[in-house]
Simulated assay, not measured.
Amino acid sequence: MGKVAIVTGAGSGIGRAVAVALLDAGWRVALAGRRADALAETAALSAGESLAIPTDVADEAAVDALFEQTKARFSRLDLLFNNAGTGAPPVPIEDHALDHWKRVVDVNLTGAFLCTRAAFRLMKAQAPRGGRIINNGSIAAHAPRPLTIAYSATKAAMTGLTRSTSLDGRAYDIACGQIDIGNAETPMTRGVVRGTLQADGAMKPEPYLDVRHVAEAVLYMAGLPLEANVQFMTVMATKMPYIGRG
């Protein structure tokens, strides 16, 4: 029948690439995202068995419905890829709107928590027990870009979420790891090729990597037996200014 995964933010970018890779590898995948049309486009890219469930991960009721519908359709859950994320306009800290801050926290951090909580409830109760959670972090947690305080703060918090989830999941055969991605080519990041703000104030183009390499990395992490885990993995364009940034 194939293992079962939920991918959030599956309507575009990294989420779409990972969802399609899982489907092509024989997984059954629940596609979560805010736009039904984008989820339908993702589903059409693979002949695998998918279920599109429009979801705002910042909405507690919507997240609970996502997991309920997944269980009703597929009976269990083997993998959650916490991928949904957003950013805020690049402005100085003193001009950062509270509404923008709250939205980034709601999606990037609270959304990942709500999905993790729902996954624990399902994975602990199912037979065979357990499963895996992979969080999409960011190298921004370790080396932020200028004017990205909300995004960088939530991605640093994601690392804490990963560590706590990994620890608390041990007793229930729930493994948790994190992938930190640098400059994967997606619609959201394509602008780095033309030029992006550096720590010294300069605008410089940066190299990027094909998003399929990210999908392959997640697929590797997802395919491990539950007694093995990739705790943290960094996948990045080799020549991007991360090591030594600033």
Results as ranks from 00 to 15, higher is better:
187 P>I: 11
213 H>N: 11
182 G>A: 10
2 G>R: 00
73 R>T: 13
41 E>W: 03
207 P>V: 05
191 G>Q: 10
55 T>H: 03
36 A>D: 12
44 A>S: 12
121 R>N: 14
51 L>N: 04
9 G>N: 05
127 A>C: 06
125 A>W: 03
63 V>R: 01
6 I>M: 11
239 K>I: 02
144 P>K: 13
178 Q>T: 12
63 V>D: 01
89 P>L: 12
49 E>A: 13
106 D>C: 03
203 M>Y: 09
229 N>A: 12
185 E>H: 14
78 D>H: 15
2 G>I: 00
128 P>M: 07
189 T>C: 05
7 V>N: 07
153 A>V: 05
151 Y>K: 07
82 N>D: 09
126 Q>Y: 03
37 D>Y: 08
113 F>H: 06
234 T>W: 05
138 S>L: 04
92 P>F: 04
70 T>S: 13
31 L>M: 11
29 V>G: 10
3 K>E: 11
18 V>C: 14
7 V>A: 03
224 L>W: 05
156 A>S: 14
186 T>N: 04
215 A>E: 09
56 D>P: 01
58 A>Y: 00
243 I>W: 14
130 G>L: 02
126 Q>D: 05
80 L>I: 10
114 L>Y: 08
35 R>A: 04
69 Q>T: 10
90 P>V: 09
43 A>V: 04
174 I>A: 09
114 L>R: 10
82 N>Y: 03
5 A>H: 05
160 G>I: 07
118 A>S: 14
122 L>C: 10
223 G>F: 06
193 V>Y: 08
180 D>P: 00
160 G>T: 07
52 A>Q: 08
238 T>H: 09
63 V>C: 02
119 A>R: 02
151 Y>A: 05
100 H>V: 02
73 R>Q: 13
225 P>G: 04
111 G>D: 01
179 I>Q: 01
217 A>Q: 06
178 Q>A: 12
219 L>N: 09
46 S>Q: 08
36 A>Y: 03
97 A>H: 13
176 C>N: 08
194 R>H: 10
127 A>E: 14
94 E>S: 07
67 F>M: 09
239 K>Y: 14
200 D>T: 06
10 A>N: 08
181 I>H: 02
116 T>P: 04
176 C>F: 08
53 I>V: 15
142 H>K: 13
78 D>S: 08
131 G>W: 02
65 A>E: 15
124 K>Y: 00
187 P>S: 11
134 I>R: 07
213 H>L: 12
222 A>F: 12
97 A>L: 13
150 A>M: 03
3 K>D: 09
17 A>E: 05
188 M>Y: 10
198 Q>K: 11
